Simulated scan of single mutants.
Amino acid sequence: MAEDERTVDTPTLEQAARQIRRYGLDVDPQAVLVAVRLMAAGARLGQASEVHFARFDLSTGRYRLLADLEDHGGEKSPSDLAASLGVSRATVTGLLDRLERDGLVLRRSSAEDGRSAVVVLTARGAQKLRDLAGEHFGRLQAMVGDLSTQERTVFLDLLGRVTRGIAALTED
């Protein structure tokens, strides 16, 4: 059995319950187990995503930025990109530096306000997205290929609810 297959089921419900008892907490072990496994799956998915996008000489962040630009008519301000990607303006700047160096985007002054900048998807950037689309979307489909349409519908609902709960980790 591959390591990835062995680690999918760790920790176990009993391990979670044992930890909770050790600290004398009144917490549902199953809820903790779901959250811990989701966090572990998220970490593994993040690593796999980087391997996936490296095939196209991109990172997950650079791909997301290109796709967001394409979804918004090929032009957007750096601050709007940061907001829609959920990252800092400094992170966007780093992503843009590499994308611009590769000729996939360019930065220019805004036609509406010469003091602000906009990011423009170049023809080369749009072609890059077209070139990777078949393999990219095919692999995404394969990733969830063991789920039926009904299961994917339920999963999307559950994922939305869990995503709304993420703030519990960060709020004061």
Rank of each mutant, 00 (worst) to 15 (best):
I20C: 00
I20A: 00
R22G: 02
R22F: 10
Y23A: 04
Y23G: 00
Y23S: 01
G24K: 09
G24A: 03
L25G: 00
L25N: 01
L25I: 02
D26W: 01
D26Y: 05
D26N: 13
V27Y: 06
D28G: 03
P29G: 02
P29F: 09
Q30R: 15
Q30N: 06
A31Q: 12
A31Y: 12
A31S: 11
L33D: 03
L33C: 05
L33N: 05
V34Q: 08
V34Y: 11
V36I: 15
V36C: 04
R37P: 07
R37F: 10
L38M: 11
L38G: 06
L38A: 11
L38W: 07
L38T: 12
L38H: 06
L38I: 03
M39S: 06
A40I: 05
A40R: 15
A41Y: 14
A41Q: 12
A41T: 09
A43W: 08
A43G: 00
A43L: 10
A43C: 01
R44D: 02
R44N: 04
L45M: 14
L45S: 14
L45T: 14
G46Q: 04
G46S: 07
G46E: 08
G46N: 04
Q47H: 10
Q47T: 13
A48L: 15
A48S: 15
S49P: 00
S49I: 03
E50Q: 14
E50L: 05
V51I: 12
H52V: 10
H52F: 15
H52L: 15
H52W: 08
H52N: 09
H52Q: 14
F53N: 04
F53S: 05
A54L: 09
R55F: 06
R55E: 14
R55I: 06
F56L: 05
F56P: 00
F56W: 11
D57E: 11
D57T: 09
S59G: 10
S59I: 04
T60S: 12
T60C: 03
T60H: 05
G61H: 05
G61W: 01
R62F: 00
R62M: 09
Y63C: 07
R64H: 07
R64I: 00
R64D: 01
L65W: 00
L65A: 15
L65N: 01
L65Y: 02
L65C: 14
L66C: 04
L66K: 04
L66W: 05
L66Y: 05
L66T: 03
L66I: 05
A67G: 02
A67L: 08
A67H: 12
A67W: 02
D68I: 06
D68W: 04
D68K: 13
D68L: 15
D68G: 08
D68H: 07
L69G: 06
L69H: 10
E70W: 09
D71V: 03
D71E: 15
D71H: 14
H72W: 11
H72M: 07
G73F: 06
G73E: 02
G73A: 10
G73V: 11
G74F: 08
G74N: 05
G74K: 07
E75T: 14
K76F: 09
K76P: 00
K76G: 02
K76C: 06
